[in-house]
């Protein structure tokens, strides 16, 4: 058995072993042909739209998408002059940080518990992973109805349990609505995160703990000094992937409030969607798309660099 440290990262960048047999001479071309379909598919579907967005961003665009004239950085200036853009940007940061942090703080203990040996563990895991199987759009639709102030079943439940004594209008004011949306986003992000962490936990071999126990590390100590360090790469992966998913997450806010009331729950993606498909400001929307893409790109590069450094040490 290999040591627990040898588990591969998300996309291992390591080289392969020795070159073998007669495949040496075919190796290059064969690998090329094997990856070509995937390369083509993603390059076309993801690369071309980006080129189109760049092209559009530098043009004046009619409501109906006709490119009128090259207008340099006018669309960029428009975006930077829009106070709604800054508000959405700030809210996106709060949204991403709160959801990712909340998800992690809840997922870690849940994963640790699910890693314990207890009666009905398989069933418990199934119940924890359940939200994963439901579309975000539908989850949001269900919650929108459940959170209805007068007739919603969530208020009804809280009233029954005696937690509140008057119904709460969850989506009527922006700060509260935003908190509710963050909570729902955390709820739907937990299954994926727990799964990732469980994978990490299951890779920590029992003999590591046994060795630790010999040295007197049990309970909290063993968690702090053995589990957590070994789990760290998985926690990092969970953070990175969640940041991406949450930064881009659209249906929860769109279905629940469409960024309202008074644009108080608008994040970049909802702002972007309104610009592009509600107000027909395609030039401005292209600029926002590109900026979001740039942020994601920077993030990816930083992440890849981290991965590589981790491997070298």
């Amino acid at each position: 058995m290999s040591t627990a440290l040898s588990h591969p990262p998300l996309l291992p960048l390591a080289g392969e072993g020795k070159v073998r047999g007669i495949f040496r001479m075919f190796r290059m071309s064969r690998a090329f042909w094997l990856i070509l379909p995937g390369l083509l598919l993603t390059a076309l579907v993801i690369g071309l739209p980006i080129l189109i967005l760049i092209w559009t961003a530098f043009h004046e665009v009619s409501r109906f998408g006709v490119l009128l004239s090259f207008n340099g950085f006018a669309n960029f200036a428009d975006v930077f002059a829009d106070p709604l853009f800054y508000a959405a940007l700030l809210r996106t940061i709060v949204w991403t940080a709160a959801v990712v942090l909340g998800t992690l703080l809840l997922s870690l203990p849940v994963a640790l518990i699910l890693n314990e040996d207890f009666a009905g563990r398989g069933f418990a895991r199934l119940l924890i992973l359940l939200p994963w199987s439901v579309s975000l759009t539908m989850t949001a639709v269900v919650w929108r109805w459940a959170l209805n102030g007068q007739s919603g079943l969530f208020n009804h439940l809280l009233l029954q349990l005696g937690i509140i004594d008057t119904p709460i209008e969850w989506l009527g004011t922006a700060p509260l609505a935003f908190m509710v949306q963050i909570a729902i986003a955390i709820l739907v992000s937990i299954p994926f995160t727990v799964t990732l962490l469980l994978g990490g936990l299951s890779s920590i071999a029992g003999d590591v703990y046994e060795a630790g126990a010999v040295d007197g590390a049990t309970g909290w100590k063993s968690f702090r000094h053995i589990t957590l360090p070994l789990l760290k790469p998985f926690v990092n992966i969970a953070i990175v992937l969640n940041v991406i998913y949450i930064f881009n997450s659209f249906p929860i806010i769109w279905v629940l409030t469409q960024g309202g009331p008074a644009d108080g729950t608008d994040i970049l993606v909802t702002y972007l969607y309104k610009l592009a498909f509600k107000f027909g400001q395609l030039g401005k929307a292209s600029v926002v798309s590109l900026m979001m893409f740039a942020v994601l790109l920077v993030f990816t590069v930083v992440y890849a660099a981290l991965q590589m450094r981790r491997e070298e040490t």
Binding site: T42, L53, T56, I244, F247, N248, L272, A276, S286, L297
Partner: peptide, 24 residues
């Protein structure tokens, strides 16, 4: 490079490209 490329495609979300995809 291919792995990095795949990573990037995973990081980009449909919503960021929605307008570009539509025009494509």
């Amino acid at each position: 490079k291919y792995q990095l490329f795949l990573l990037i495609t995973q990081m980009v979300s449909p919503i960021v490209l929605a307008l570009g995809l539509f025009r494509l």
